[in-house]
């Protein structure tokens, strides 16, 4: 991997990690959702800095350029994180449904006497 590419990848990973930590510190991102983003940052950082590991994975997977291995892992993790969000959204949808039902039953109207 070229030095320019390495600097770009390290810069992005460090920037991402700083941003995540800052957002969690400000309570704008919950820890339970932050870990996947931290994982992405760490994986990109490790692959960028540990050239031996990157080369080994690159040749193992038959990828031509090492930088593509970094992108590949980044992309796979983004797919995973999106799936995780879909699961969470499904849970939240179920919870909102049940809350709406319970609220509706609590506020049930008496029949109108005519």
């Amino acid at each position: 991997m070229l030095l320019k590419q390495k600097m770009l990848a390290v810069g992005m990973a460090v920037g991402l990690l700083i941003f995540i930590i800052e957002t969690v510190r400000r309570r704008r991102l919950r820890e339970e959702y932050a870990w996947l983003w931290v994982l992405i940052g760490v994986v990109i950082l490790v692959l960028s800095l540990w050239q031996g590991l990157l080369r080994a994975i690159t040749s193992l997977l038959g990828i031509e350029l090492p930088i593509n291995t970094v992108f590949f892992f980044g992309l796979m993790l983004v797919v995973f994180i999106n799936l995780h969000f879909s699961v969470k959204i499904s849970q939240l949808t179920d919870q909102v449904k049940r809350l709406t039902q319970e609220l509706a039953l609590k506020k049930e109207d008496p029949p109108e006497r005519s």
Binding site: Q101, A104, L105, K107, E112
Partner: peptide
Amino acid sequence: ARRGGARVVNHAFNLGDGAARQTGFLY
């Protein structure tokens, strides 16, 4: 529905026909 003489349970927003039936089963 109320004018017709039914008891009415209101969902705050549209949930879907299945959810509406399920609210009825809970009731």
